[in-house]
Amino acid sequence: MNGTPTAAAGSPTALVELAGVGKRYGNVTALEGVSLAVRPGEVVCVLGDNGAGKSTLIKIVSGLHRHDDGVFRIDGEEVRLTSPREALDRGIATVYQDLAVVPLMPVWRNFFLGSEPVTGRGPLRRLDTAAMRRTTREALLRMGIDLRDVDQPIGTLSGGERQSVAIARAVHFGARVIVLDEPTAALGVKQAGVVLRYVAAARDQGLGVVLVTHNPHHAHLVGDRFVLLRRGSMAGSHAREEIVLDELTRQMAGGSDLDRLGHELARIRPSEPDRKAP
């Protein structure tokens, strides 16, 4: 985007950068010392078990909550977001798991809901339906989604397709960074594949993607960098070439914790070979 290259690496400025960010709710520390950077055309996966602080991180990046410690930069500029609207205006769009779609409305009406283009003036001011249909079809095609009929109710699409329309919508309305909250959690293997394909399509269009998930298999398919969270703090940050899937899975599941669990279960059922022994 406005890519002022940093002197050191020559890589573009991070669209979103967190440095040592923390968040407290009263006495409870929800997040501590988290750092990550998302550059254009990069997928950063945030991995963690339930309660690891993933949703707190999303809330900070999407402008729902303000961080207490550390630095949050957008395009290199330090910010404190006060509302989701402000995040949107700065190009950060969040696609939540429980998607913001109206099932009985056609795809094209959903696509433009809240930002409908109008044409004509006075009492003849009306929705530009032709442009809405055309733009929806084009925006979806650009993401590789080929809906023959954008007039069908969005509820008739599969979960993966709906998720993909939401991503295409975010891209169309000027998002430069998309934050995806567990996009594959409720989906079957095939549908998850569909969504991951569109994540890759968004990346190939030069967007930054923050993919929040607890599924290391899905993350490893598209991720450029993996940030591991455990109990509110960073448990690791690895570039794609530094880590293999097995290691990622092991670390995410709690590393030595899992080894101990393996031993424990092996004792209960001695016939089972101890597969996870280091």
Partner: peptide, 24 residues
Amino acid sequence: LRTRAGNWIFATGGNAEAARAVGV
């Protein structure tokens, strides 16, 4: 069928939370 208000009416009845989330 032809105004923003109409789109908002369908959305309000169909999924009020989703409608609110996108600024309706």
